[in-house]
Design a protein around this nucleic acid. Sequence first.
DNA 1: TTGAAAGCGCTAACAA
DNA 2: TTGTTAGCGCTTTCAA
Lengths: 341, 341
Amino acid sequence: MTDCWEIHYPSGYCPGMSTISDVAARAGVSTATVSRALNGKANVDPELAARVRQAATELGYQPNGPARNLRRQEAAVVALIISDVENPFFTAIARGVEDVAHEVGYSVVLCNSDENADKENRYIDIAIQERVAGVILSPSGPAAGVAKLAARGTAYVAVDRPLPDRDSDVVLVDTRLAAAQATAHLVAQGYERIGCITGPAGVRTADDRLAGYRDTVKTTKNLVRRSEYKAAGAHRAAASLLSQPNPPDALLVANNAMAVGVLRALQELNLRPGRDVGVVAFDDAPWAELLDPPLTVVAQPAYEIGTEAARLLLARIADNTRPPTVTTLGARLIERASSHR
Amino acid sequence: MTDCWEIHYPSGYCPGMSTISDVAARAGVSTATVSRALNGKANVDPELAARVRQAATELGYQPNGPARNLRRQEAAVVALIISDVENPFFTAIARGVEDVAHEVGYSVVLCNSDENADKENRYIDIAIQERVAGVILSPSGPAAGVAKLAARGTAYVAVDRPLPDRDSDVVLVDTRLAAAQATAHLVAQGYERIGCITGPAGVRTADDRLAGYRDTVKTTKNLVRRSEYKAAGAHRAAASLLSQPNPPDALLVANNAMAVGVLRALQELNLRPGRDVGVVAFDDAPWAELLDPPLTVVAQPAYEIGTEAARLLLARIADNTRPPTVTTLGARLIERASSHR
DNA sequence: TTGAAAGCGCTAACAA
DNA sequence: TTGTTAGCGCTTTCAA
């Protein structure tokens, strides 16, 4: 399986399978010189370096990553463990991380923890085993795995949610404030019984968004529901809220996927967003403007979360003694028609 | 940076930093036995194996991945190189790949090539360097990188688009047929001047969708536009098509992101989907039903593409001499109101 | 069934 | 500036 099965070259020549010794032999130098030349170290005669590069190209030489990482005791790789690959909020973070990491020669591997602490821990183990340089994660609950990272001295940064019981660099959005403002906006638009559909208890963003809502609305009796951060749960939650005797006339919805479920419930009940039930949801999406009426959203700076987290991680890789920092970014309310009568 | 800076243990004990020799010493056996025990080889005394596992746990032993991969000459990792992490079609594929790969103990790393052949080649190089067991990719044009995979004998599978000039396992959707059927559906609904907005020339899915459209509509003069597979380009394309003297009365749109741009253009021109301009777009989305009118789509079996590709890859990892296969999955037209007058 | 030892390919300390 | 060499941690012969 690893021999050159497809193309036959003369005399054992096999591109991509050659090692540093092959390159050294062909260039007529030692392996050390090849290593130095290919890694752009200063102390190499330019003429020799050129010969080495030539030989490497001719042989189709690809350095052996595991060997390099074993020797260096670290891979130039950053692991990004996010709780949902299918959530545009997290993929936007991923782009931010990638853009910064690639600039300095790190690769990014994306891992999908599925909001599941077991999967998260498994990926953390893999990250440790592969000796990645650092980990960025959106923690799904109290991750025992993170303690291992700390114990090993592997750099890590939390995004979106802080790590419970643990200091670390973390990049957050002031989601409580944003929720309070969004709720205040609904009040200002004349809605009087504002409800809230948020994520699972214990998930920090869910709790914060609820807290922000409560900062603004004092009597929330029977106006709050929780579900997974998914459409189906939110659909049930909205149906339940709206079919009670004294239903809400507006809803704050804690994420984008949930908004889909809520809007579907409104459709089924023949309620029009805005006119009948004011709606504000977290996370902007390209399709939010296409709805009728267009959806008012709290836009989070996801890409910037990613770039900032990557910068912090790189700083921590360079110096793990720096004190942990908390970076809080602001969100922006984008008013559209779903929050106007 | 790699010492135990946070927690102080007695006598040099440092979880996660220990090697197989430490475990061996603690269990009073040789490293070979540790290796055999931890890898579940048959020929190990159960009592010894238990002692080894105990020692490993006590030390918080994490095997050194690079060392293992170096020795094994292969990592239990498959690389998935997709052309757009923010496209739900590809993230759904990713989930399919993950689910199958995890079952057999492989990790999946996701790489975002951004529809850019350079990035794709770069990721292929990294995959080769890291000696991954296999690669699944949605090729962005004629990738020189794939030749390297072939030359090295690394297993690979193409998804969504075939590799130009190269046999390989590939998992496709019969997108030409789907496009033809979608167009026929528009004809059946009484639309008479059907236009098509598709992706860049040379991208196979874009060309196939256009071909399917042309299979059904014979006179397409000035009714076809191409753009990137993005909202902005499609927006311009739609605006241009619809503002010409003899505009189309229906549009086939080649992907989901493009649909957003097209629908925005219709809004701006005060044209109502369905009534004024029939619209069918590729790729279903949770929000397609929420639009007014709901969007008719061609739903592709993205998750199944992923599971099938992963199965093929595993088969090829096991045996790289099997003949290349082409798997073609069907798409499903989901009729909603945007394609009815 | 177990242990001793070689060696995967690379980098870096040391020598020249 | 270049070469020699040790050794990263693991798996796997080979020998006992």
